[in-house]
Structures are given as C-alpha cells and as structure tokens.
C-alpha cells in the first residue's frame, strides 16, 4: 500500500506536483498515467525519498521510505533514467546493491536468470542496449524479492520484443499478488496490464479508479441510435434530459440517459429503431479527454499539407 497525502513539489514558481492525494491498493497493478511533464517521475522520486516534497508526505506500507531499514526487501524500483555505472558489469552492479541490503549473493544469479541476462553477466553495463539496460534495472528492482514495485516508464524506448517481455513480466507480478505502480504515457499499454488507474495532469489528480470506471466516466461513452424518425425521438429524449447530437445517416449519439431507458422510451412512443448500441470510449479517448487541458506542450492537430500538384524538380 502506497499513500500520498497532499504531496507537493515546487521548482521555482512551477508546481510539478500539486497537492496530490492518492492511494495505491495492494496486490494490484496500478497504472500511473499522465502526459509527459505531468509529474509522474517527480511523484515516484518523492515516494522513494530521493526528492524531498515541498509539503505533504508519502508513505509505503504506513512508513516513510527513509524509515525502512533495508528497503530493497520491501520496495523495488526502476527509475526512468539509467542508474548504472557504465564501467561496472551487470553482476558487479547487482552485487553491491545486494550487499547494501544484506541480500544473499546467490540472489544475484537468480535475478539475472529471471530477466534473461545470465549470458552477459560479466559484460560491462555501458555496452548494453536500451532493452538490456531496462532488464538490468528490473533485475535490480527484483533483487530483494519485494512485495511492492515502482516502475517508471518501463517500456519507454523498447523494441516490440522488449515491450512484450515487460508486459508479460508485469502480468506475472500481478499474478503473484504484488503491488505494482507503473507509470506510463501509453494508454494502450495500461489497458493491457493495469487493474487500477491513477490519472494525473499538471501535477494534479484527475481521475482514480478501475480501468472500467475511468472509461465509463468519459463523455466519449455514449449510446448510438439509428431511426427513421429522428426528430420525434429527439424531442422525446431531450424532454428526458438527454444530451443528443445528430450524426449522418439518421444516427443519434445520446449521453446522460441509460441504454435501457432509451429503449423503453422508444417503445412507449412507438418509434422504430434500426440500431441501439452502447459505444464505449477506448482508454485512449478517455485519457485524451481527461488530460486535454493539462498537457505541458499542446499543439493543435493540423491536417497534413496537401500533396504538391506541381512535380518536384528532380535531378532527372
């Protein structure tokens, strides 16, 4: 269980994290979502006592991180930036980490095996690819066999093979009943791996709940109705307090009234329906909508420039 209370971090006049109160439930994978610059990494660093909060507090299993004697046994972490000395071998890196928390040396070989780095254990970490570096980081996080894991953007920059590996690894952690907080700005990834979501934007909590709740809360979720009697159904629905927008081909998009109620109203008023279907927003849409006003750098989506009509003056 990780809890933050009014956690705040200010850099100069910029609030990186703004009175963030959240709790990460035990035994689940919690996706920590937000656009770049939303304060995810800063929050994770404050939970680990690497950065000190301007105000507020963070607790892991009811204690401040700094009060845990050998924290690697309780909390494993993978931070976004590589935190390995490039001249040291993979095994050397894990060995000093193990020693610092009195973890038996044989555990080093176990975690190397776990992440598939046994063959390069004696190679310098500086020569590792991004994917191998990430595996080494995950090996380090698993060293103390912790019940809680904090992973900051673990799939960032990985190739498809690496992404699949991290994804299945996260699933196996969840299956073992570990508490995982995994940050990402990739929705699709979270839809596949997380049970619970915490969405932040500009350092503030935007939404927190199960994946289904967050999606349902999105206004992109609506009911699609097609009927030849558009205007009659519209007046019935608006009288019911529904929010109705018309679409092409006799279609109506309806919000704020349940699908059951719409069917009932249509039957009561003898309106013919050709289609009545729920339209769930994707997690992606829900996220875009939630964080729309909080992105650090926003750009209007511009249509691509029209193809040039005059032929380009090529060399031939």
């Amino acid at each position: 269980m990780i809890e933050t209370t009014e956690l705040t971090k200010r850099y100069g006049d910029k609030l990186a994290v703004d009175h963030l109160t959240m709790s990460i439930p035990s035994g689940q994978v919690t996706g920590f979502l937000g656009p770049n610059g939303a304060g995810k990494s800063t929050t994770m660093r404050m939970i680990l006592d690497l950065d000190s909060p301007t105000s507020g507090s963070a607790k892991v299993n009811g204690r401040r991180y700094r009060d845990i004697r050998f924290p690697l046994h309780e909390v494993g972490s993978l931070l976004e930036a590589k935190s390995v000395h490039p001249a040291r071998t993979a095994r050397g890196h894990l060995q000093w980490l193990a020693d610092s928390n009195r973890i038996p040396r044989k555990r080093v070989d176990e975690v190397l095996e776990l992440v598939g780095l046994s063959a390069v254990a004696k190679k310098r970490a500086g020569g590792f690819s991004l994917g191998m570096g990430q595996r080494l980081g995950i090996a380090a996080a698993m060293l103390g066999d912790p019940q809680t894991l904090l992973l900051d953007e673990p799939v960032n920059g990985l190739d498809p093979e690496g992404i699949v590996w991290v994804r299945s690894f996260l699933r196996s952690l969840a299956a073992e009943g570990r508490t995982v907080l995994v940050s990402s700005h990739l929705m699709s990834e979270m839809a596949l791996t997380a049970d619970h979501l915490i969405v932040i934007g500009a350092g503030r909590l935007i939404s927190q709940g199960s994946v289904a709740d967050v999606v349902a809360g999105s206004s992109s979720s609506h009911v699609l109705v097609r009927t030849p009697e558009v205007s009659r159904l519209m007046s019935v629905l608006t009288a019911e307090g529904a929010e109705v927008s018309t679409d092409v081909d006799h279609a109506l998009r309806i919000r704020k009234v349940s699908i059951e109620r719409i069917g009932q109203l249509a039957a009561d008023n003898a309106v013919v329906l050709h289609e009545l279907s729920p339209q769930a927003a994707s997690l992606e849409q829900a996220f875009m909508e939630l964080t729309h006003d909080s992105g650090e750098y926003q750009t209007e989506l511009k249509p691509p420039p029209p193809p040039s009509t005059t032929s380009a003056g090529g060399p031939n």
């Binding site: 680990l48 931070l79 390995v84 490039p86 928390n101 380090a140």
Partner: peptide, 10 residues
C-alpha cells in the same frame, strides 16, 4: 551516471 539514485533508494 545516475547511479546515485540506485544508491539512495537502497
């Protein structure tokens, strides 16, 4: 190298 974060997290 950023290793300081691993050190202080440990």
């Amino acid at each position: 190298t950023g290793q300081i974060r691993a050190t202080f997290a440990a």
